[in-house]
Simulated scan of single mutants.
Amino acid sequence: MNFIKETVSSLFVTYGTLNPFELCEHLNIKIILSNLGNEIKGFFQRTHGCEMIHINSEIEEHEMKYVCAHELGHAILHSNMSISYFIENPLQVKNKFEIQADKFAAEILINNDIKDQGYGELNIEQISSLIRVPAKLIKYKLNIN
């Protein structure tokens, strides 16, 4: 997954930030907050040259940041995919594209020096709670299967 790290590094060099909301602004991707119900946290949409990330307004702020980073991953890494592909191939999507979007989110949301940040004897779940990202992102960042 070096291409994901390289993509994130390039974004940082170009825009000077890894804040997913700021990156969306630089990339002209609109953020739309609305109540998406209890099941959907967010999704990426591309229509007629317009790109949008829809985020559930009912989730907590730190979760909105994760959802934005994840959906931005789809926007950047899967730019040639249409929504119909995702609907028609849900298992392949979950096993490949969703994981790639999460790895992208991990690269954006977690510092590269996480190993050196003094978390000592904390386990993955404790670190997750402390830095407010899903545990799976920490595992991806640390290359733990």
Rank of each mutant, 00 (worst) to 15 (best):
G42A: 06
Q45W: 11
R46I: 00
T47L: 12
G49V: 02
C50K: 14
C50R: 11
E51T: 01
M52S: 11
M52C: 10
I53T: 03
H54S: 01
I55E: 00
I55P: 00
I55D: 01
I55M: 03
S57H: 04
S57P: 01
E58M: 06
E60G: 01
E60K: 15
E61S: 11
H62Q: 12
E63R: 08
E63Y: 13
K65D: 13
Y66M: 06
Y66H: 13
V67T: 12
C68Y: 02
C68I: 02
E71S: 02
G73N: 02
H74K: 05
H74S: 07
A75I: 07
I76N: 00
L77F: 05
L77D: 10
H78Q: 08
Y85L: 08
I87V: 10
E88K: 15
E88P: 03
N89Y: 07
N89P: 04
P90V: 05
L91H: 08
Q92I: 13
V93N: 14
V93K: 12
V93G: 04
V93C: 13
K94R: 14
K94V: 08
K94W: 07
N95K: 14
N95W: 06
F97I: 10
Q100S: 02
Q100K: 09
A101I: 09
A101F: 09
D102S: 09
K103W: 05
K103G: 06
F104L: 08
F104G: 00
A105R: 09
A105D: 09
L109A: 09
I110T: 01
D113F: 06
D113A: 00
D116P: 01
Y119M: 03
E121Y: 05
E121M: 01
L122G: 00
L122I: 00
L122W: 00
N123G: 05
E125K: 11
Q126V: 07
I127E: 06
S128G: 03
S128K: 04
S129A: 12
L130H: 15
L130W: 07
I131V: 13
I131C: 02
V133N: 01
V133F: 11
V133D: 06
V133C: 06
P134K: 14
A135W: 07
L137N: 06
I138A: 08
K139Q: 15
K141F: 09
